[in-house]
Amino acid sequence: MDELSLYVLDITMNSVRAGADAISVTICEEGDWLDFTVTDNGCGMTEEQVKKLTDPFFTTRKTRKVGLGIPFLTMLAEMTGGFVRITSTHESVSDDHGTTTHARFGRNHIDFIPLGDMIETVLTLIQGSPDINFTYTHKTDGGTVYLSCAELREILEDVPLNEPEVLAWIRENLREQYDAASAS
């Protein structure tokens, strides 16, 4: 994967599959670091599952025997002097369950890969899961880009967020926010 936004998509898909109905994706670019954090209210993981996460031969899926999402991300983050931290509370432990994945990358490190197209990542997530309340926040050097599916849904009511016209509106809205952030 040659852009970070694909890793963000991959990690957020884990939250979707964990049955979350609210997922927040936050990207923060500040100083030497790019941090992204994905927080969900899905089923969460047990302590034992969290321990095994960096093992490529651990996966909960049944269609194949390897899971490379987290090992890939961890390798990439550590190569740039960063890290990946995952905290999780399994639904058997608490009603306040879910998972938070925080990845940090050194923005000026030679092995840092560009963030890439976050708009397409956000659109892919909404297209696939129009009923999930995604919150997207991207703090750039020039300003903050923000989208809340819950706020859009208040206007759209029963019109799904993955209607092509709605997706096109979201794409344009984000693009204009990014333009404004890079102009300031």
Binding site: M1, L6, L9, D10, M13, R61, R64, G67, L68, G69, F72, E120, T121, L123, T124, Q127, G128, P164, L167
Partner: peptide
């Protein structure tokens, strides 16, 4: 298919092409 394997192989632009093309 949008798992790690699909995303890594380039599924995101494929999905976008179907969504936009069909519309």
């Amino acid at each position: 298919g949008m798992a790690t394997c699909g995303i890594a192989a380039g599924a995101r632009p494929v999905l976008a092409a179907f969504v936009e093309g069909i519309n």
